[in-house]
Amino acid sequence: MIQPEKKITAKNIPDFEPLSSGHRACQGCAEILAQRLVLKAIGKDAIVVSATGCMEVVTTPYPQTAWNMPWLHVAFENASAVASGVIGARSAMVKKQRIKKNSTKVIVMGGDGATADIGFQSLSGALERGHDFVYVCFDNEAYMNTGVQRSSSTPPGAWTTTSPLGEYSDGKQGGKKDMAAIAAAHNIPYVATACPGYPFDLMNKARKAALTPGPAYLHVLAPCPTGWRMDTRFGVRISKLAVDTRVFPLYEIIDGQYVLSKKGKKNKPVEDYLKIQGRFKHLRKESVKTIQENADKRFAELEWLAGSIKN
């Protein structure tokens, strides 16, 4: 595990801008914010491979592009496989002395649909083969680009257009797929969760992931005002709340060792997180209680895994 030379703080934020302004993300989009922060931290010497999704559509409406980095998109399901190819091609080019150095990092980006559902097997394959790349999942908890359909990363109880409210349905049934744990189960050197509400935490994790040799997986919560049915000014606030209420705990798994991040030890009630989102407004007291219990349980589990139970 290589430690970055210097932590990113408010005083030394990199100047590099991966995305130019004028892209077409919705007002208040926290996903594009998270993407910008991640790539700022990783720096210019990188190739971005994107899965289909919001970020692909809003940044590259042909013939325009918002990218100041080399960017490649092929399909929804194969971003990790494409990245494997890019990595293979580059090492072949180094062998043939077509390019001199191969320090360029390969960053794969996908939404939760591209990661947990459609691109799951190609991601799993790439993690298992151990390519040197960073996979960043921007989890906005549904298929927002196509109009808010549920994904396997949608949290239980959430309203989406395909988990509607009515006589037979009360929001999403079943749980939220824990992609970070699944990625960690591949025994990869670095897994972390982050959110744009805590930008320095996110940027430092991104940099760490990029410097890690071998595959690294970053799971970033990306609040979506459009799909979460909330005010556009709440993007950052809600991601902070997700951490503070322990709905989305921040942690790292470094070579199998769980490390809880410093943020998110405030332990606010989950109601604070749920009540400003329209997608949860139908929830009854019992459902909120269940969500609270599950959040507490998961956090206790993480604390146990990190071996730092301090009360």
């Binding site: 210019k44 010497d45 990188a46 190739i47 994107s50 692909e56 559509v57 940044t59 590259t60 409406p61 042909y62 013939p63 592009t65 990218w67 100041n68 980095m69 080399p70 960017w71 490649l72 998109h73 092929v74 890019v86 360029t104």
Partner: peptide, 19 residues
């Protein structure tokens, strides 16, 4: 076309009904 950080290009852009 190459994926070169010195000369960034976007490959595989989103083309909808307009193109």
């Amino acid at each position: 076309r190459m994926l070169d950080p010195e000369l960034p290009r976007s490959i595989g852009a989103f083309g909808a009904q307009n193109v």
